[in-house]
Write a protein that binds this DNA or RNA. Structure first.
Lengths: 230, 230
DNA sequence: AATTTTCCGTAACCTATGTTACAATATTCG
DNA sequence: CGAATATTGTAACATAGGTTACGGAAAATT
């Protein structure tokens, strides 16, 4: 690893929840004991069920966390953008396995830290320990919310929830979708035509107007009522 | 709290993953700083989304962890039998919320430990800390496996997986279902008639014979192939 | 600007599961 | 044991979403 690369990694790591507010020298030690892995776009990095005795950090690039079943149906659990620590809330289990397939969306770089080493660092630094505990709790809540969303709502409710979140985060009635409809259909675990139909229905019902990835919201009340959230 | 009750609780707690291999005196301290809550059958103990700044332990009885949507559709995430620590992998999050509704199946008793006190105990005892880390990882894997099962398999695959697990755990081709078909339909998040149809189909196809809750397995290969596990 | 790739709308048809309802058993409880 | 309750099988019908396929539009790449 070159000097310059290390410095870059240091910067990235310190932006990750888990490594926040740690001494630079400590992070440097962690990095120099880790391994770097490079991947092109659309490569499979890890598979669901594979043993997970490491902490993986996405240093550069983008990657997906996916459920893929025997028939090839895909449910996109997470779209991760660097820098981000990967679904590694499992390492303390008796039988730690990757919970999802990890696939790169773009050319990406990962830092790999062995579980045993990571454990040592954690026992050395209470800050790191607290960060990790918080990370695990957040990961747990993230996955259960995703679970609820996918399994308890129908497609119209999912779309309404999605749009309501966009309205709130962009604070406007004219909003720009943050992903393609194709990706959104993967996030919802449905086919693209099915999702397309729902957008058309909502447009026919006068709830939204669709201009490609731009949406004009016409009936916010409908969206909020339907998405079953305040 | 009476002397006798405390002793009972002590015994129960020490059987829980999280409190295993701790000094009795330490557990006694924890218990004497906790509160007891009693519930009848079919009472709601906590709701999904409610703030969770406590560790709840099911000391006596049985309870369900449930997803319930606005229309009343139910997905049973977990059937918990005492003694068992509840879905409390969330307490270190910035916004800790209950991930499921908790509803008693039978008359039950809970021990409630405030988050701050629990945190103090954890920092005092490395054993407790390690137990808790393991518990969180296991909880995470449990919920993602459940998620995969529910969202990526069709009903026939779910039933086949269920039966294969029974075969393996009971080590026989004549097996006894460990719950009613009604409860099983809740575990799968489908209606009872839908589940009933699948059992009938599998019987017609000569895969199993159904005698109420007892099943005779006729075609193990089919079951294994279909459940998409080795 | 031209070309290639990705994304999107649309339509006809299919299938798994939901809905409702009723009667027949099991199981639990008094 | 008898009554009450919970569980189960069954059937007719409804519907959300899947499947496949095609052409056009948009975006990225050269």
């Amino acid at each position: 690893m070159k000097m310059e690369e290390r410095k870059n990694i240091l910067e990235k790591l310190s932006k990750c929840e888990v490594f926040q507010n740690l001494e630079d020298s400590f992070i440097v030690e962690i990095v120099s004991n880790g391994q770097i892995e490079h991947y092109e776009a659309k490569e499979i990095v890890r598979r669901r069920g594979e043993k997970c005795e490491e902490v993986l950090v996405l240093i550069d690039g983008e990657a997906y966390g996916l459920f893929v079943n025997a028939e090839g149906r895909v449910l996109q659990i997470d779209h991760m953008i660097a820098p981000k620590i990967l679904a590694s809330a499992v390492i303390f289990s008796t039988d730690p396995k990757y919970p999802v397939d990890v696939e790169t969306a773009k050319r990406s770089t990962f830092l790999r830290i062995e579980k045993d080493k990571f454990l040592k660092y954690m026992l050395k630094s209470e800050k790191l320990l607290r960060n990790y505990l918080k990370y695990m709790s957040d990961a747990f809540l993230f996955i259960t919310d995703r679970f609820y969303e996918i399994s308890m709502k129908n497609l119209v409710q999912k779309v309404c929830t999605y749009i309501v979140n966009l309205i709130d985060s962009q604070n406007s009635d004219i909003i720009l979708m943050d992903m393609t409809k194709e990706e959104l259909s993967r996030e919802f675990g449905v086919t693209r035509p099915a999702l397309s139909r729902v957008f058309i229905e909502l447009e026919k019902a006068g709830v939204i107007e669709v201009y490609g990835r731009k949406l004009h919201v016409r009936n916010k009340k409908f969206l909020r009522d339907y998405s079953e959230f305040g």
